[in-house]
Amino acid sequence: MITLDEARVMVAEARAKGRALGLKPLSVCVLDAGGHLLAFEREDGASPGRFEIARGKAYGAVMTGLPGSAQKARAEEQGYFMAALNGVYDGRLVPVPGGVLVLKDGAVVGAVGVTGDTSDNDAAAAVAGIAAAGYAALA
Rank of each mutant, 00 (worst) to 15 (best):
A83V: 02
G56E: 05
K24H: 13
G106F: 09
L37D: 14
A84Y: 09
L31S: 07
G134H: 07
R8Y: 07
A20W: 04
V114P: 03
R19D: 13
E41C: 08
G116T: 14
R19F: 07
N121M: 09
A133G: 06
D105N: 14
E6N: 07
R50W: 07
A33F: 11
I53K: 04
Y80I: 11
A12C: 13
D117I: 08
F81C: 00
A84Q: 04
R8G: 09
P48V: 15
V100G: 08
L23H: 08
G110I: 03
G129T: 06
S69P: 01
C29T: 13
D90A: 14
D120C: 03
V109W: 06
I130T: 01
G134Y: 03
A83S: 09
T118S: 11
Y135I: 02
Q78K: 12
L85D: 00
D5E: 15
Y80R: 08
L85R: 04
L93Q: 06
G91K: 12
M1H: 15
A73G: 10
G79T: 02
A61L: 00
Y59H: 04
R50A: 13
E6F: 00
V102C: 05
L4H: 14
A12Y: 08
A14L: 10
E77K: 15
G35D: 04
A54F: 11
V28W: 01
V108H: 05
R8P: 04
A131K: 11
A133N: 09
A54V: 08
M10T: 05
G60W: 02
G56N: 03
G35N: 10
V30S: 04
C29W: 02
A16I: 06
G87L: 12
T118R: 08
T3N: 13
G18Y: 00
N86H: 03
G65D: 10
G110P: 01
D5H: 14
Y80W: 11
D105V: 04
G49Y: 11
E77V: 10
A136H: 01
G65R: 09
L23M: 15
K57T: 07
Y135K: 02
T118G: 03
A124D: 06
G56W: 07
A70S: 11
A133H: 02
G68P: 01
L37E: 15
R55Y: 12
V96A: 10
A70I: 12
L4V: 15
K17G: 01
A70K: 15
V9A: 10
E13I: 12
S27V: 09
A12H: 13
E76T: 04
A61V: 07
G116F: 10
H36G: 07
Y89C: 12
D117M: 10
G116K: 10
A124F: 02
G116S: 11
V127Q: 08
A125H: 03
E6D: 14
A136M: 08
R74N: 11
D90V: 07
R42E: 12
G49F: 11
V9M: 10
L101E: 06
E52I: 02
A58L: 06
Y80C: 00
K72A: 13
A12T: 15
A123I: 01
G98Y: 00
A83I: 00
R55N: 14
A83L: 01
G113A: 01
A16H: 08
P97S: 08
V62G: 10
S69N: 10
G99M: 03
V11T: 12
A128Q: 07
M63K: 11
R15V: 13
R74F: 13
A136N: 07
E6Q: 15
